[in-house]
Protein backbone atom coordinates (compact mmCIF):
# COMPACT_ATOMS: atom_id res chain seq x y z
CA UNK A 1 0.00 0.00 0.00
CA UNK A 2 2.93 2.35 0.67
CA UNK A 3 4.29 1.76 -2.83
CA UNK A 4 0.81 2.25 -4.29
CA UNK A 5 0.33 5.58 -2.52
CA UNK A 6 3.89 6.63 -3.36
CA UNK A 7 3.19 6.20 -7.07
CA UNK A 8 -0.08 8.15 -6.95
CA UNK A 9 1.38 11.02 -4.93
CA UNK A 10 4.52 11.09 -7.08
CA UNK A 11 2.34 11.71 -10.14
CA UNK A 12 0.29 14.31 -8.29
CA UNK A 13 3.52 16.04 -7.23
CA UNK A 14 4.70 15.90 -10.83
CA UNK A 15 1.47 17.63 -11.87
CA UNK A 16 2.04 20.28 -9.19
CA UNK A 17 5.59 20.79 -10.48
CA UNK A 18 4.39 21.26 -14.05
CA UNK A 19 1.80 23.82 -12.93
CA UNK A 20 4.38 25.62 -10.79
CA UNK A 21 6.96 25.76 -13.58
CA UNK A 22 4.71 26.67 -16.49
CA UNK A 23 1.72 28.36 -14.84
CA UNK A 24 -0.74 26.50 -17.10
CA UNK A 25 -4.36 26.95 -15.93
CA UNK A 26 -4.88 23.16 -15.73
CA UNK A 27 -5.26 21.38 -12.36
CA UNK A 28 -2.28 19.34 -11.24
CA UNK A 29 -4.46 16.26 -10.69
CA UNK A 30 -5.49 16.15 -14.36
CA UNK A 31 -1.84 16.39 -15.44
CA UNK A 32 -1.04 13.61 -12.95
CA UNK A 33 -3.86 11.44 -14.32
CA UNK A 34 -2.72 11.78 -17.91
CA UNK A 35 0.97 11.22 -17.13
CA UNK A 36 0.10 8.15 -15.02
CA UNK A 37 -1.82 6.62 -17.94
CA UNK A 38 1.06 7.38 -20.32
CA UNK A 39 3.70 5.97 -17.93
CA UNK A 40 1.69 2.76 -17.54
CA UNK A 41 1.47 2.53 -21.33
CA UNK A 42 5.23 3.04 -21.87
CA UNK A 43 5.93 0.53 -19.10
CA UNK A 44 7.74 2.87 -16.69
CA UNK A 45 5.13 1.97 -14.09
CA UNK A 46 3.70 -1.50 -13.67
CA UNK A 47 -0.04 -1.84 -13.23
CA UNK A 48 0.34 -3.94 -10.04
CA UNK A 49 2.23 -1.05 -8.40
CA UNK A 50 -0.84 1.21 -8.41
CA UNK A 51 -3.97 -0.78 -9.17
CA UNK A 52 -5.06 -1.51 -5.57
CA UNK A 53 -4.88 2.03 -4.23
CA UNK A 54 -6.21 3.42 -7.51
CA UNK A 55 -9.22 1.10 -7.58
CA UNK A 56 -9.96 1.91 -3.93
CA UNK A 57 -9.89 5.67 -4.56
CA UNK A 58 -11.84 5.47 -7.82
CA UNK A 59 -14.58 3.35 -6.25
CA UNK A 60 -15.04 5.83 -3.39
CA UNK A 61 -14.65 9.00 -5.42
CA UNK A 62 -18.07 10.32 -4.44
CA UNK A 63 -17.25 10.37 -0.74
CA UNK A 64 -14.43 12.87 -1.23
CA UNK A 65 -16.94 15.38 -2.61
CA UNK A 66 -18.98 15.52 0.60
CA UNK A 67 -17.08 18.43 2.25
CA UNK A 68 -17.40 20.55 -0.92
CA UNK A 69 -21.12 19.84 -0.87
CA UNK A 70 -21.44 20.84 2.79
CA UNK A 71 -19.79 24.11 1.72
CA UNK A 72 -23.16 24.99 0.14
CA UNK A 73 -23.99 26.37 3.61
CA UNK A 74 -21.77 29.34 2.81
CA UNK A 75 -24.03 30.52 0.01
CA UNK A 76 -27.53 29.84 1.31
CA UNK A 77 -28.33 33.54 0.88
CA UNK A 78 -27.68 33.80 -2.85
CA UNK A 79 -29.20 30.35 -3.48
CA UNK A 80 -32.47 31.25 -1.77
CA UNK A 81 -32.70 34.36 -3.99
CA UNK A 82 -31.77 32.72 -7.28
CA UNK A 83 -32.57 29.05 -6.87
CA UNK A 84 -34.88 28.98 -9.90
CA UNK A 85 -32.31 30.03 -12.56
CA UNK A 86 -29.64 27.90 -10.86
CA UNK A 87 -31.77 24.75 -10.84
CA UNK A 88 -33.31 25.15 -14.29
CA UNK A 89 -30.00 26.05 -15.97
CA UNK A 90 -28.21 23.11 -14.32
CA UNK A 91 -30.83 20.54 -15.30
CA UNK A 92 -31.31 21.80 -18.87
CA UNK A 93 -27.60 22.11 -19.53
CA UNK A 94 -26.79 18.66 -18.10
CA UNK A 95 -29.36 17.15 -20.46
CA UNK A 96 -27.98 19.12 -23.43
CA UNK A 97 -24.40 18.04 -22.70
CA UNK A 98 -25.38 14.38 -22.53
CA UNK A 99 -27.44 14.50 -25.74
CA UNK A 100 -24.89 16.55 -27.73
CA UNK A 101 -21.81 14.59 -26.61
CA UNK A 102 -23.34 11.16 -27.12
CA UNK A 103 -25.03 11.97 -30.42
CA UNK A 104 -21.95 13.64 -31.90
CA UNK A 105 -19.91 10.62 -30.96
CA UNK A 106 -22.39 8.18 -32.50
CA UNK A 107 -22.69 10.24 -35.70
CA UNK A 108 -18.89 10.48 -36.10
CA UNK A 109 -18.50 6.75 -35.57
CA UNK A 110 -21.26 6.08 -38.06
CA UNK A 111 -19.55 8.13 -40.79
CA UNK A 112 -16.14 6.65 -40.04
CA UNK A 113 -17.34 3.06 -40.21
CA UNK A 114 -19.14 3.79 -43.51
CA UNK A 115 -16.00 5.30 -44.98
CA UNK A 116 -13.81 2.38 -43.89
CA UNK A 117 -16.30 -0.05 -45.47
CA UNK A 118 -16.15 1.82 -48.78
CA UNK A 119 -12.35 1.54 -48.98
Amino acid sequence: MILQCAVLFAFLAFGELVVWLTGVPVPSSIIGMISLAISLKIGWIRLEWVDKAADFLVRNLGFFFVPAGVGVMRCFGIISQEWIPITVATIVSTFIIIAVTGQTHQICRHFMSRRSKQK
Partner: peptide, 21 residues
Amino acid sequence: GGEYIEFWLKPAVVALGVPLY
Protein backbone atom coordinates in the same frame (compact mmCIF):
# COMPACT_ATOMS: atom_id res chain seq x y z
CA GLY B 1 -12.09 18.36 9.56
CA GLY B 2 -13.59 18.18 6.08
CA GLU B 3 -10.40 19.30 4.37
CA TYR B 4 -8.75 16.00 5.31
CA ILE B 5 -11.44 14.17 3.33
CA GLU B 6 -11.41 16.67 0.48
CA PHE B 7 -7.63 16.25 0.39
CA TRP B 8 -8.08 12.79 -1.20
CA LEU B 9 -9.94 14.26 -4.17
CA LYS B 10 -6.73 15.12 -6.01
CA PRO B 11 -5.00 11.71 -5.61
CA ALA B 12 -8.33 10.10 -6.55
CA VAL B 13 -8.42 12.08 -9.79
CA VAL B 14 -4.82 10.96 -10.47
CA ALA B 15 -5.99 7.37 -9.82
CA LEU B 16 -8.46 7.72 -12.72
CA GLY B 17 -5.33 7.33 -14.87
CA VAL B 18 -5.55 3.56 -14.22
CA PRO B 19 -8.98 2.95 -15.87
CA LEU B 20 -7.89 5.42 -18.54
CA TYR B 21 -4.77 3.32 -19.24
